[in-house]
Simulated assay, not measured.
Amino acid sequence: MQPTVPTRARNGGDPPQASLHRALRCARQGWPVHPLAPGRKTPAANCADCQGSRHTHDGCACLAEGRPCHGFYAATLDEERIRRWWGSNPNYGVGVACGPAGLVVIDIDAHTTRLADRDRLLPGIAIPDTIDLTGLESGFHTIAVLAALHEEPSPADDDTTLRVRTPSGGLHVWYRTRPGHRMLSSTGAGKKRALAWQVDVRGLGGYIVTPGTVTAGGTYAVQDGARVPRLLPTWLSAELERTGHREPPVVASTAPVAVPSRAAQAISRARGLRGSTTGSALDRTIATVLADVHACAAVPEGASFSEKLNRAAFTMGGLVAAGRLSVQAAEDHLTAAAEHARPGQARRAHGIIRSGMAAGHQRPLHTGGHT
Results as ranks from 00 to 15, higher is better:
residue 82 I to V: 09
residue 153 P to C: 01
residue 327 V to E: 09
residue 285 T to V: 10
residue 273 L to S: 11
residue 366 H to Q: 10
residue 355 S to H: 09
residue 210 T to Y: 07
residue 333 H to Y: 15
residue 293 V to E: 08
residue 251 V to A: 14
residue 357 M to C: 09
residue 160 T to I: 07
residue 127 I to L: 15
residue 210 T to V: 15
residue 221 A to M: 03
residue 119 D to E: 08
residue 96 V to N: 00
residue 259 V to H: 14
residue 10 R to W: 07
residue 368 G to P: 01
residue 318 G to L: 04
residue 260 P to S: 13
residue 14 D to K: 05
residue 138 S to R: 13
residue 201 V to L: 08
residue 319 L to A: 09
residue 87 G to T: 09
residue 243 T to H: 10
residue 295 A to N: 11
residue 73 Y to V: 03
residue 175 Y to P: 05
residue 246 R to K: 14
residue 77 L to H: 06
residue 300 P to H: 11
residue 272 G to R: 04
residue 40 R to Y: 05
residue 138 S to Y: 12
residue 281 A to P: 05
residue 266 A to E: 05
residue 322 A to H: 07
residue 67 R to H: 14
residue 210 T to I: 13
residue 64 A to G: 15
residue 5 V to T: 03
residue 222 V to I: 14
residue 366 H to R: 14
residue 272 G to C: 01
residue 113 T to L: 14
residue 100 P to N: 04
residue 19 S to F: 00
residue 16 P to S: 05
residue 352 I to C: 10
residue 158 D to L: 03
residue 100 P to S: 03
residue 279 G to C: 09
residue 329 A to Y: 08
residue 26 C to Q: 12
residue 355 S to D: 14
residue 265 Q to I: 08
residue 298 A to T: 02
residue 113 T to M: 10
residue 175 Y to M: 10
residue 29 Q to C: 05
residue 264 A to N: 04
residue 9 A to K: 06
residue 180 G to F: 02
residue 26 C to S: 10
residue 97 A to H: 13
residue 117 D to L: 12
residue 331 E to R: 15
residue 193 R to M: 06
residue 360 G to V: 12
residue 191 K to Y: 08
residue 144 A to V: 02
residue 363 R to Q: 13
residue 88 S to Q: 12
residue 36 L to W: 07
residue 233 P to F: 04
residue 236 L to E: 07
residue 139 G to L: 10
residue 75 A to S: 15
residue 266 A to G: 06
residue 279 G to W: 12
residue 76 T to M: 03
residue 198 Q to Y: 11
residue 118 R to Y: 03
residue 107 D to S: 12
residue 283 D to Q: 14
residue 230 R to A: 15
residue 283 D to K: 14
residue 283 D to F: 11
residue 117 D to A: 14
residue 68 P to S: 13
residue 191 K to A: 15
residue 195 L to W: 01
residue 147 A to L: 03
residue 148 A to N: 06
residue 340 H to R: 13
residue 331 E to Q: 15
residue 256 P to F: 13
residue 52 G to M: 04
residue 201 V to F: 09
residue 156 A to P: 01
residue 137 E to S: 15
residue 33 V to L: 00
residue 244 G to I: 08
residue 219 T to K: 02
residue 290 L to P: 01
residue 169 G to P: 06
residue 16 P to Q: 09
residue 314 F to Q: 01
residue 205 G to Q: 11
residue 156 A to T: 01
residue 160 T to Q: 15
residue 8 R to N: 02
